[in-house]
Design a protein around this nucleic acid. Structure first.
Lengths: 341, 341
DNA sequence: TCCTGTCATGTAAGCGCTTACAAAAAGTTT
DNA sequence: AAACTTTTTGTAAGCGCTTACATGACAGGA
């Protein structure tokens, strides 16, 4: 046995004194091989340190038991968490997950889609719905099933998600109900991110609905970091009239905003209310705990996996799975200052 | 053109009126094909929506431009961040990253290593050094290069990391220097996690070195969540003597601990000091900001990629790249209560 | 005109595997 | 013991691609 020896099926077959077909059967349908032979083969496999070549296998069998996912970035905890669940559900079905990142760029996403398909993905998970038609066409033309998660659309695709717009409108309405009249929003970056855009639209629509009550409303966008949330809060709080409530497009921005508020000596929610969206882990552990929209990312991930697996197996599926979200009232939202309750 | 048509090289060749060899050359070494032909071929590629099959390509060319990484979990932000950098550096070299998760289980890690090798990974990134010898043997026997990150070992492997033990000892010494005599530690789960274990060992060694000064020292382990950090803090704070400083094995535990301390009405660091490890983003945004060990995860990730790429290319590399870490003094560590400064 | 050198393209042999089909072995029935 | 069935194993084609080598076309030099 050489240094750096990569044994093939053939090597195993020779070592065990059987044909390659038998070895292949030992590995894939062990029952079709008599125990004595099987043991001999398995010994050879072990002795040689044989690992089947996935490429060869895929080529010959024309199936891969693999699905792909293209997510904006793994650095975002909500995707990390959802994907984890997605992956767990897949492995229960013996399916492997391949992950690729798009960096919120739909051209890069298209490339990654092709790369995953090229690697034999039987199905794909994509995030949201903002992407060139060409990407959809490509997938449909090849007959590769895909699901879209973290949002709901109105096309004939398969969605596993929630209504970002409605949820955002709801929490905004809550803010208005509490008596806030000067309101601002720190939104996530909306270009190429339909979830962020929908959340802005939801908040805007709530403002429009309460147009007679709301005196001022302002939106600024900020990248997905605590620091940017803090900076955005800084800018917002200098405006006149100063907002009494800041609705954030996600929890990361909200946590950054709370932190900066306290640093500026503003009480939350006494002087200013702050809300989030997503309910990431840290949301419960900041002071005050964040009032936010709870999104069950794990549930969404495994639901997506279930739908995708059925799609691949050609079983009937519901076209949209709506994941329930709910506002969790914690400590960061209260009535505006100077209100007698 | 059929529904669900997956064109092959052959289809493209036929459509363009050339041989498969020419199409292959157009895709891989365009200069070796005369422009007129190339254009014809590229048109056919586009028209048919052709995507090269990775398996076939790998099989025929015997290279994949792919490396694999097995990390404990993608839900841990430090790995997410390090991997992101790892991946960025790889793609600059035109190499694709395949990620797999082990869930802190070395058996599963071994499986994933085989799976990645089976998929043609030219090299591997593994985390830490606690794993069965068999895994190393397997890789060495096949001649698959690998690097180990997030820790430093003393074997002849390639390490890109830092001395968890020393860094932990340093921050512990700092705590002792400040006058703390009753000290506790909330450690990460140490089984199958050499980084966590080294950090405990480092803190212990600092305690031993100051054995005449330190009156009490206690360690409990907790899983990697804010909640578990908080719960652990709860337990610790009930002990007598009550520790005046809690050294945490990572920032997540520390943030959980701080949050619980404040909920219990304990001032940090006035009544009790808390330190972290890793310097994740949130560390600067909690109140008080966390005194912790800053680890440049991104730098580590891209250094790991560089070493691995050189290893694959058979270029000389240094066997260990030590990544510098440093204690960042923020607000959560102070002298014990009742000290006159 | 013929010969030689270059360059573009084609031919065909696999890469490692699965799987129809064929063949051989083992068991069953008469 | 022969004839038949069932089970186990082998043979070999081919999955989609790359690439060494063969072929052919064309240009330039004699």
């Amino acid at each position: 046995m050489n240094e750096t020896f990569r044994p093939t099926l053939n090597d195993v077959a020779r070592a065990a004194g059987v044909s390659t077909a038998t070895v292949s059967r030992c590995l894939n349908e062990p029952d079709r091989v008599v125990p004595a032979t099987r043991e001999r083969v398995m010994r050879a496999v072990k002795d040689l340190g044989y690992t089947p070549d996935f490429g060869g296998r895929a080529l010959a069998s024309r199936r891969t038991k693999t699905v792909g996912a293209v997510i904006p970035t793994m650095e975002n905890a909500i995707f990390a968490r959802g994907l984890q669940a997605f992956q767990e559900t897949l492995s229960e079905a013996g399916v492997t997950l391949l992950v690729a990142g798009s960096g919120y760029d739909s051209e890069r996403e298209a490339e990654q889609v092709r790369a995953l398909v090229g690697r034999g993905a039987d199905g794909l998970l994509l995030i949201g719905l903002a992407r060139p038609q060409a990407t959809y066409d490509y997938l449909r033309q090849r007959g590769t099933p895909y699901v879209l998660a973290w949002n709901l659309g109105d096309t004939s695709d398969h969605f596993i998600g929630f209504d970002n717009l409605r949820a955002a409108a709801e929490i905004a309405s809550k803010v208005i109900e509490l008596g806030h009249r000067d309101i601002a929003m720190i939104a996530g970056v909306t270009s190429m991110n339909d979830r962020a855009a929908d959340r802005v639209e939801g908040v805007r629509s709530a403002m429009r609905r309460a147009i007679s009550e709301v005196k001022s409303f302002d939106v600024i966008e900020a990248p997905y970091t605590f620091e940017d949330g803090a900076t955005a809060f800084d800018r917002l709080v200098r405006r006149t009239p100063r907002p009494t409530a800041v609705i954030c497009g996600n929890d990361v921005l909200a946590v950054g905003a709370i932190s900066r508020a306290k640093a500026l000596g503003l009480g939350v929610p006494g002087d200013i209310s702050i809300t989030g969206f997503d309910d990431i882990d840290i949301a419960s552990f900041v002071e005050p705990a964040l009032t936010t929209v709870h999104v069950p990312h794990r549930r969404m991930g495994s639901a997506a996996a279930q739908v995708l697996l059925r799609l691949i197996a050609n079983e009937p599926v519901e076209p949209r799975v709506e994941i329930g979200v709910e506002i969790v009232m914690r400590g960061s939202l209260g009535p505006p200052p100077g209100t007698t309750p």
